[in-house]
Design a protein around this nucleic acid. Structure first.
Lengths: 128, 128
DNA sequence: ATAAGGGCTCCAGTCACTGGAAGGTCAAGG
DNA sequence: CCTTGACCTTCCAGTGACTGGAGCCCTTAT
């Protein structure tokens, strides 16, 4: 299967698929005309990558996860640890964003948003 | 005041301050030895930038906010609109992260995390 | 005189793509 | 057979907001 068809089926940009080959996450075959040829296993890997990325795992995490997936003698503890660490980071990020959200909400609420120059948002940024 | 002293006072890396000059956010003076010389207004701007960045505003938003701050005839509506749009983006990001968090929590919970290879996390990534 | 601890510029790297240029290939229609 | 348009290829540059490092100069204290 050609790259365009793969891209449509698994809903991933052609550029991204080429990039994943560049960094060694997949190794599609090549036709005589140099076109990439994707087997079922390649598609499966791409789908795996797509879902891992959708859960926010970094590319390096994805590489590790794929290696674990292909290692029949893996220990689930290794997978769990990776996922837990990632979960912790996501939770940190959420907390950080929620703190911004709370401040911004207050500031936006306090600002009249009319044609006058007086603005609590700017006052807050300028003070402290 | 020299860059190191400024960095300490407003708790911002020296590199970041230089970078902000590079992209035209501040314009410190120069001493005869080419050292940057920071006035009160420069420090004030850096502090403003630090707080805006801490609220998650992009550098370009910061540029706009500083321009509005310095424009005596601004309309607070412009500031409010910027902040509201930013708030919306933060809320989108939070929702996205919370969705990841929910899925990851379930998966982590379902995974034994022992020395056996069976792993619901990998199964989930591989299936669908 | 020298050593430590500033400061300076410039270049490269981060992360995960994304856009674009310049060119080769393929299938369909005239 | 020729052209057109939709594919495909590689390679290079850019994104955002820094960050690290090399190689150099300046200042201050011993």
């Amino acid at each position: 299967m050609n790259i365009g068809e793969v891209a449509k089926r698994i809903d991933m940009p052609v550029k991204t698929i080429r990039y994943y080959e560049d960094i060694g996450l997949i190794r599609p075959l090549r036709d005589t005309n140099a076109y990439r040829v994707f087997r079922e296993t390649d598609m499966h890997k791409l789908a795996f990558l797509g879902r891992a990325r959708a859960l926010g795992f970094s590319i390096e995490d994805c590489r590790t996860l794929m290696a674990l997936y292909e290692d029949e003698s893996r220990e689930s503890a290794d997978v769990k640890q990776l996922a837990q660490e990632h979960l912790r980071q996501i939770e940190d990020k959420i907390a950080q964003l929620q703190s911004m959200q709370a401040t911004l909400k207050d500031l936006v609420h306090a600002c009249a948003g009319d044609d006058r120059p007086d603005c609590p948002i700017l006052r807050d940024l300028a003070s402290h």
